[in-house]
C-alpha cells in the first residue's frame, strides 16, 4: 500500500463505519488465531483433525458483514470459520467442535468446522461437497413461497465444488424461480491437490452466471471491504425480489488442505510464499492504520484480546465432557426406533 495515499484513497469504506471495519478486522484475527490453535492441538495429539482457512479471512469477514443476523440464512462449507464467527458463533463453540465435545452443536458427531446453529441461521451440512447447495436453494424457495421479503440465503463453496452436478442443478433452479439466493464461490485456486486448470476449462466461475440468466461478478477476496460491497449488493437484490446472483471472490489457500494433507507433494514452497505476499490480514491492518481507523497500539491490544479469547475458549471447551456411548443412538428419527418393529 503506497504511503502517499490520502486517507480517503487508502480506504474506500463503502458505507462501513469505523466500528464495522474494526469488527471485520477482529474477525480476521480471530480466524487466524483459531486456525492456528486447531493445527497446534493436532500436533500436540489432542485432536485428530483440523482444517484452516488462511487466505480466506478477508473474504469471509467481509461477506459476513453483509449478512443480516436474525433474518438471513447461511449455508456454508467446511472452510467457513470466518463466516461462522461473523454471523455470531463464538470461539467457544468453535473449540467445542474441534474437541468434539458433547456440548458441540452436533454433539461431537461431525468433523470440526461442520457447524450448525439454528439460532444463528446456519444450516447443518455434511462433508459431502455441493450437497448443501440444493438445501440452500430449498431454503430460499421457502422464503419466497412464504413471501418473506427482506430475507435471503447466502450459500458458499470452493472453486472445486462448482464441478459437481448439484452445483449446476442448484444454480439452474434458483434462477428459474428468481430465488433470494447468493452463491458465493471462494476461489482459492486449489481443491486439495487439483489446480484450477484441471478443474475447469476457463478459470472465471462468475462467467457461468449469464448462462443461467443471473448476474455474476468477480471480486478481490483479499479486500474485505470490496467483498462486503459486492456481497451486500447481491444480498440486497435477493432480499428485494431481484433473484439470485453468482459472486466469485478470488483468494488463495495458504495452508495445506487440512492436517491430513501435505501440500508440498503437489505445489512448491515458493509458489505459496509468493501468494502469501498478498496476505489479507497484515494488508488490512495496514490500511486501517493508514486510514486512521485504528492505531498500532489499538491493533496490539486487539491481538492480545483475540489471543486471550482463544485461550479461554480452548480451556473451557477442553474441560467439557465427550458425548457418551449411548449418544450414538439418539436423533435418528423422531421418537424411539428399531429397524424391526
Amino acid at each position: 500500500m503506497a504511503k502517499t495515499d490520502t486517507k480517503a484513497n487508502a480506504l474506500d469504506r463503502r458505507g462501513l463505519t469505523d466500528e464495522q471495519l474494526r469488527a471485520i478486522f477482529r474477525n480476521m484475527l480471530l480466524q487466524r488465531q483459531l486456525d492456528n490453535r486447531g493445527f497446534q492441538l493436532n500436533r500436540q495429539g489432542k485432536v485428530p483433525f483440523a482444517l484452516g482457512s488462511e487466505g480466506h479471512e478477508a473474504l469471509q469477514a467481509g461477506a459476513a458483514m453483509a449478512f443480516e443476523r436474525g433474518k438471513d440464512i447461511l449455508a456454508p462449507y467446511y472452510r467457513d470459520l470466518g463466516l461462522a464467527l461473523g454471523i455470531g458463533l463464538t470461539p467457544y463453540e468453535i473449540m467445542l467442535s474441534i474437541f468434539a465435545r458433547a456440548a458441540d452443536h452436533n454433539g461431537g458427531r461431525q468433523f470440526p468446522n461442520h457447524y450448525s446453529s439454528k439460532h444463528a441461521g446456519l444450516m447443518s451440512f455434511s462433508s459431502i461437497l455441493a450437497a448443501h447447495i440444493p438445501h440452500a436453494v430449498g431454503a430460499a424457495y421457502a422464503m419466497k413461497y412464504r413471501g418473506e421479503n427482506g430475507r435471503a440465503v447466502l450459500v458458499t463453496c470452493g472453486d472445486g465444488t462448482t464441478s459437481e452436478g448439484e452445483w449446476h442443478e442448484s444454480m439452474n433452479f434458483a434462477s428459474i424461480h428468481k430465488l433470494p439466493l447468493v452463491m458465493l464461490v471462494e476461489n482459492n485456486e486449489w481443491a486439495i491437490s487439483t489446480p484450477l486448470d484441471k478443474q475447469m476449462g476457463q478459470p472465471e466461475i462468475w462467467k457461468r452466471a449469464a448462462g443461467y440468466g443471473m448476474p455474476g461478478k468477480r471480486f478481490n477476496g483479499y479486500d474485505p471491504v470490496e467483498t462486503y460491497a459486492v456481497v451486500k449488493e447481491a444480498l440486497d437484490r435477493a432480499r428485494s425480489g431481484g433473484g439470485p446472483s453468482l459472486v466469485e471472490g478470488t483468494c488463495y489457500r495458504f495452508l495445506a488442505h487440512s492436517t491430513d494433507d501435505n501440500d508440498m507433494t503437489y505445489r512448491t514452497k515458493e509458489l505459496v510464499a509468493e501468494a502469501r505476499k498478498n496476505d489479507p490480514v497484515p494488508a488490512f491492518e495496514h490500511r486501517l492504520i493508514e486510514a486512521g481507523v485504528m492505531t498500532a497500539a489499538d491493533v496490539d491490544a486487539l491481538r492480545k484480546d483475540v489471543l486471550r479469547e482463544t485461550n479461554e475458549a480452548t480451556d473451557k471447551a477442553e474441560a467439557m465432557p465427550y458425548p457418551q456411548a449411548s449418544d450414538l443412538y439418539t436423533h435418528l428419527y423422531e421418537g424411539a426406533w428399531q429397524p424391526w418393529q
Binding site: 439452474n172 434462477s175 476449462g201 476457463q202 457461468r208 448462462g211 443461467y212 440468466g213
Partner: peptide, 19 residues
C-alpha cells in the same frame, strides 16, 4: 423451456465452460 431454465439459450452456457 421457461420452467426448465431461466435463460432460453442453452448455447449461452458454453462461455462459462470455455468452449
Amino acid at each position: 423451456a421457461d420452467k426448465q431454465m431461466a435463460n432460453p439459450n442453452v448455447a449461452d452456457r458454453a462461455v462459462g465452460y470455455g468452449m
